[in-house]
């Protein structure tokens, strides 16, 4: 019995070590790396295509790390990254790091029906599509509900004025990611 246990433990360790080594040996491919701004500017032409984006992690979903938000030069340019099966989850430790993420760009058409459902649901997934519930935007709790209402009204107006009948919201289904640099302070003279 004891021998069986030792053999089982040794096999599990070997499999774990082998898997870790394989993961670290994955060859790097040459990719066109875009900023969050570039992705969003060209998003309509890149839907369903594999893209690579780099940006700062402004928020990682605290309920399992299934998604994170990358911002560009400011938090006005932001894209949601879904970890999916390939990545599994993002670590909270990446908040504030610059990540390079490769994945497939997807479109969520925000229609009037979508917004109507949003009003009547507490589904975090649906709210996340619009960046609510921890998008990295900093809003005092007291103002959060009012701001959400304001954003929803603005969204409804945008939908009414749109030719397609929807407002496009883009996100990336993540396939892999790397930390492109350790968090470091900006060069002297560059202010925030």
């Amino acid at each position: 019995m004891r021998k069986l246990f030792v053999m089982l433990a040794a096999s599990a360790l070997m499999v774990a070590c082998g898997a870790r080594q394989n993961a670290s040996n994955t060859p790097q491919e040459t990719q066109v790396v875009m900023s969050v701004e570039e992705i969003l500017e060209n998003a309509s032409e890149l839907v369903d295509a594999e893209v690579t984006v780099t940006g700062t992690v402004s928020h990682v979903c605290q309920h399992g790390g299934q998604r994170c938000f990358l911002i560009g030069a400011s938090d006005e340019t932001m894209i949601r990254i879904e970890a999916g099966e390939e990545i599994g989850a993002f670590s909270q430790e990446h908040v504030g790091d610059n990540l390079q993420v490769t994945g497939v760009l997807r479109l969520v058409p925000i229609t009037e029906e979508y917004v109507a459902n949003l009003d009547s649901t507490d589904s975090h997934d649906e709210h996340h599509a619009l960046g609510y519930h921890g998008s990295g935007q900093v809003v005092p709790e007291a103002e959060a509900e009012a701001l959400k209402k304001e954003q929803t009204e603005e969204l409804k107006t945008q939908i009414e004025n749109s030719e397609e009948g929807y407002v496009p919201v883009y996100f990336i289904e993540g396939l892999k990611y790397t930390v492109v640099e350790e968090a470091e302070t900006a060069p002297e003279g560059e202010g925030v």
């Binding site: 400011s74 006005e76 504030g96 900093v138 968090a183 925030v192």
Partner: peptide, 8 residues
Amino acid sequence: KRSFMTSQ
């Protein structure tokens, strides 16, 4: 790590 000014 780093800082930025938020849109708010």
